[in-house]
Design a protein around this nucleic acid. Structure first.
Length: 569
DNA sequence: GCCGTTTTCGGCCCGACTGTTTTCAGTCG
């Protein structure tokens, strides 16, 4: 059983306990454990095999260690099955409606025997809901207006999808006469792969003006809530945005608070408590006296911490580093010197060799690799040995005429389902740069996936593994593998690892990339561009690298050409 | 259900907004 499934079981257990009105701290314990499990790089299955003591893990005690064992060994959890028989699964769907939480969902179930969204809709239409204690006309209306959308299950959007919307709104609010500071906060500021809600913080002496401006912005479809300091709106694409107007002296505290993550903030508040202080979104207080609040820096400083970049605020070791002032200097887009994964019209790209080289040059790259598909990818018109050699000849011819950029003749070579490579060794040997990738058979069992990746890692001509897990965010999970074993092998055989910068891939993820860094594996951030414009996704790969705590020195394509050349096989 | 430099019990982060109440519970972030 995969870690994600175990984590999901604990989350479901927590949801069900919530409906039953169980001890909130017990519920939190399950959620904390789920989070711990999600951030593991080793599989619990293999940890159990090697008899690792699971209670060593944060938030896992004797009981939960036992439940993990039960899940791994039997594939089910007795406690979870028991709760599921008591609370119909549809009740959890109801709980996810805005404005309906565990208490209301439980009441609907108990009083009206409502067990799912369809029954709820019928009851609301019949006017049954507003008669319940604690419910009213407005709640009933809200349920009716949200239920269809909820039935379609609200999805998170890629960071890259939200980015232009956020930027446009920040710009519009910045132009108002009353606003002084305007900034996104929340998971967007932390540069998460996907974002659910968007948060914007503003300092202004005229909150009305700011809220009116947002309400009438062309990207806003509907105002969902409006108070004195907070407004919630729905943007196009279904994204929801919270605007908060805060006083100038609290701006730093509000930024800190609303940037999160929740887990990071809990540690911050506990730290404040230990020093007999109180931290909230208005500032850091000693009794009623404000000690800090205007900037984030002064808040972190008052708690004996260096300022922590938003990308690292996940309570995954950043506090330890900030205490010792050993936070990494995170990589920036300006550090990038090369782009080593891209396609041309030879396979499924839309631009010619010349256009791609010129586009890379325009973006300031000093070196690049053209890496079209190998023959297995028939859909993309993948290259066999003969066509590939012709293609390389063409690349060299064009590259000769363009000065100021080094062009590598590369290949994105498929690792086939039978654990062989799609091109023979003597062809790979001629390549300047070989990316080995899994495209097909991602659902094969763990052992076969492992065998395939090991074939590539052990091949003397393979420079790097591209989009190592093959996941597509929100669409399909990656191939099943023990990533720490794969990374160890890559380190042993001096094979690099890619962070594919495409917003739907971002593969390696930040945890995997951090693990790769620990092993000293050079990481390459690549755009996988299929057009000249496709090279602009580099920034998202850099954000991913930042969330992994990577510095320029950890990323191979930040090196100068002379330095990078030495890494080639 | 977890955890411990006030340790094996008694805590566990905190405020705004809404809708329902008429002083507050539930929900949300």
């Amino acid at each position: 059983m995969k870690n994600e499934q175990i984590a999901a079981s604990f989350d479901e257990l927590a949801d069900l306990l919530e409906v039953q009105g169980a001890n909130p701290f017990r519920i939190r314990a399950y959620r904390n454990a789920s989070r711990t499990i999600e951030s593991l790089t080793d599989s619990l299955e293999s940890m159990l095999e090697s008899e690792t003591d699971l209670t060593e893990l944060q938030g896992i005690g004797k009981d939960l260690a036992g439940k993990i064992k039960e899940l791994v060994e039997t594939g089910t959890l007795e406690k979870l099955e028991e709760l599921k028989s008591e609370v119909p699964p549809g009740v959890l769907d109801i709980m996810r409606l805005p404005g309906v939480g565990p208490k209301k969902a439980a009441l609907l179930f108990k009083e009206l025997n409502i067990t799912g969204l369809p029954e709820l809709k019928a009851a609301a239409e019949a006017g049954e809901i507003q008669k319940l204690k604690g419910f009213g006309k407005k709640t009933e209306e809200s349920i009716l207006s949200n239920i269809d959308q909820a039935a379609q299950a609200k999805e998170r959007e890629f960071y890259a999808t939200a980015e232009p919307l956020v930027e446009e709104i920040v710009d519009a609010l910045s132009e108002l006469s009353s606003t002084k500071q305007v900034s996104p906060a929340g998971s967007f500021r932390r540069r998460k792969e996907t974002v659910g809600d968007l948060d914007i913080l503003v300092t202004s002496d005229d909150a009305e003006q700011v809220m009116d401006a947002l309400a009438s912005h062309e990207l806003v479809q509907e105002v969902l809530q409006r108070g004195d300091t907070k407004q919630r709106v729905r943007l196009i694409k279904g994204l929801e945005m919270d605007l908060r107007v805060v006083p100038e002296e609290s701006y730093g505290a509000a930024m800190q608070y609303f940037t999160g993550s929740k887990e990071h903030n809990i540690v911050m508040r506990k730290r404040a408590q230990k020093r007999d202080l109180e931290l909230n979104e208005y500032g850091l207080f000693s009794g009623k006296k404000s000690i800090a609040g205007k900037t984030e820096e002064e808040i972190y400083q008052a708690l004996d911490l260096a300022w922590i970049p938003p990308e690292l605020r996940e309570d995954r070791g950043e506090f330890e580093l900030a205490e010792k002032d050993q936070l990494p200097e995170l990589i920036t887009l300006e550090d990038i010197r090369g782009d080593l994964h891209m396609h041309t019209t030879a396979t499924d790209g839309t631009a010619s060799i010349q256009e791609m080289i010129e586009a890379a040059k325009e973006r300031g790259r000093k070196y690049m690799a053209i890496t079209d598909h190998s023959k297995r990818v028939t859909m993309a018109n993948g290259l066999d040995a003969d066509r590939l050699r012709d293609h390389w000849r063409d690349i060299r011819k064009v590259a000769e005429k363009i000065k100021g950029i080094h062009v590598l003749c590369g290949i994105e070579c498929d690792i086939l389902e039978d654990a062989s490579l799609d091109l023979p060794d003597e062809v790979l040997e001629e390549a300047d740069w070989v990316i080995a990738v899994l495209h097909y058979g991602l659902k094969q069992d763990k052992a076969q996936i492992h065998k395939r990746l090991m074939t590539a890692i052990k091949n003397p001509h393979v420079d790097i593994i591209g989009h190592p897990t093959g996941r597509l965010i929100g669409k399909r999970p990656g191939a099943e593998m023990d990533i720490s074993e794969i990374l160890k092998a890559a380190a042993d055989h001096e094979v690099m690892m890619e962070i594919n910068a495409h917003p739907s891939r971002l593969d390696l993820n930040s945890l995997h990339a951090a693990a790769a860094k620990e092993l000293g594996i050079p990481i390459v951030i690549s755009t996988d561009a299929h057009s000249t414009g496709g090279m602009d996704v580099m920034r998202y790969g850099v954000f991913q690298a930042r969330r992994a705590g990577l510095s320029a020195k950890d990323v191979a394509n930040c090196r100068t050409w002379a330095q990078f050349k030495k890494l080639l096989k």
